[in-house]
Design a protein around this nucleic acid. Sequence first.
DNA 1: GTGTTATAACTGACTGGTCAGTCAGTAACA
DNA 2: TGTTACTGACTGACCAGTCAGTTATAACAC
Lengths: 212, 212
Amino acid sequence: MTALPKRRRRPDARPDEILDAALSVFSAKGFAAARVEDIAREAGLSKGAVYLYFPSKEAMLNGLVEQSAGQLAKAAEQLVALGAPQDPEAAFRGLLRMLFTAMGDPDINAAPRLVFAEAARFPEIAAHYRSQVLDVARRALRALLAAGVRSGAFRDVDADAFMRATAGPGIAHMALTSIFGFPPDRLTDPAAMADALADILLDGLKPRVAAP
Amino acid sequence: MTALPKRRRRPDARPDEILDAALSVFSAKGFAAARVEDIAREAGLSKGAVYLYFPSKEAMLNGLVEQSAGQLAKAAEQLVALGAPQDPEAAFRGLLRMLFTAMGDPDINAAPRLVFAEAARFPEIAAHYRSQVLDVARRALRALLAAGVRSGAFRDVDADAFMRATAGPGIAHMALTSIFGFPPDRLTDPAAMADALADILLDGLKPRVAAP
DNA sequence: GTGTTATAACTGACTGGTCAGTCAGTAACA
DNA sequence: TGTTACTGACTGACCAGTCAGTTATAACAC
């Protein structure tokens, strides 16, 4: 077995390691109460070393949010690509599955949760997240809705309400499971929960009469 | 005009005044970064006086959450009373209007926002909120759904998905407007947004054929 | 009314602890 | 032997919570 050298020489990997550690500590304690010393220890470094890679604690938060926003923006871009699909209904179902799978996983939703908790205090973070993630996702959802309306798959509902109806349940799922420890009674599988939600959103709560 | 006495004698009103100030400061800075001195000043007191009414900063947070949870629990109780109504569809529409009106108002949603941000770090707060607010609301929603199913107004959808579909958009609305400064494009009135959402949830995204 | 006293309400300087950020020094590698 | 990566003790600022002292009010006396 190769002995892990006590002092590893891989400065290229350090920033990401530090951001991982920072996410974990910020997530557990919140930005203000998080100690840089703890982040350093979790990253396997001393406090001083962390300051070789980031000029301040706030820079770590920014780096973290940027990284996460980048990933989410990519996911949203994929949605754009899927914005004018052959089958809007299937695309919508797939989107809900993605959303619930991501929002139900504490490792994945840690960054969005952090942004929710801290964005009010850091206007640049809110603005960055808004332009990089929310606006992109909004455009993707609008495109999906428009495609569905064009093809006759969807009714011409209000786009903003559509956005809230689609994304909101995902956020609620995240809050209920990851913040309040609220396991669903029956649908513990995120995909099953997404399907149940798709059923409500697509067919509505009112009983439906058979199509002619 | 009556001159406001510099040192007012009304110890009974103090705790609530302090909690109001605490909500405002916690909301702006978060619990950890909030300074007791600032809360005191906002309540028109010195720091020392605050400690005559609350033993610690954390006690203020707890008091605040308890107060807010009490109010929300009351609102949820009203929903229970409305759980087996004559007209489940009208009740559901009314519920969404209440939810969006509350969640769109920064003064009203400040407390829930704070709980969202801090609950992960204060297990008792999460537990308290869960038992006093979330469980009550969940029971109310289940009762509403069950009543609707019984009367034939609603289909028999999954209760947990129903809860997420109903509450989630309200949370999304709160996040978009109060955290990210995201004004809707068209429906700036919360009641109109609620109605648009009700349209989606009740009738579904798919085109509906006329009832026979 | 006008002193006198008691006490409830409050003040703000102070203490002790915490922690972000620094830097002189050390270890590992080339 | 020079350079890069890192360490951890240290400093200065900040702030929760305390407490000796101050002020407003009430209560009672005359």
